[in-house]
């Protein structure tokens, strides 16, 4: 494995993704990420000079909706997904800017 993922990096990625990993999981994740980066390095060996970066697999563009209201008030259904509900709103832990 050419790419070695440091402890700091895996820690940082964990913070960004808001997940906590056990030491064991961290080791596994470091190995997986290293392998992925190795594969990217392999891809980078290809000469892509003058090739447009591809953003989509399908040759489709301009998929639009017209600006017309199609959804009614489905509040009850939407709120049934909330872990907790109050006054028609989703309840989350207290959050400040």
């Amino acid at each position: 494995m050419a790419n070695i993922i440091s402890d700091e990096t895996i820690e940082y990625v964990g913070i960004l993704a808001k997940i906590e990993l056990s030491d064991e999981e961290k080791e596994q994740a470091k190995k997986d990420m290293g392998n992925m980066l190795d594969y990217i390095d392999k891809l980078n060996e290809l000469d892509t000079e003058g090739v447009e970066p591809m953003s989509h697999v399908f040759p489709v563009d301009n998929v639009f909706r017209e600006d017309v209201v199609t959804n009614g008030d489905d509040r009850e259904k939407i709120l049934s997904n909330a872990p907790e509900e109050k006054d028609g709103a989703f309840v989350v832990p207290k959050t400040f800017d």
């Binding site: 600006d67 209201v69 008030d73 509040r75 939407i78 006054d87």
Partner: peptide, 25 residues
Amino acid sequence: KTKIFCGCSTEFGGAPNSHTCPVCT
């Protein structure tokens, strides 16, 4: 009149979450 990615109304002043759908939630 509608949101950017779904057919929910952008109208002001609706009851909380009355203009929502699976996309915008």
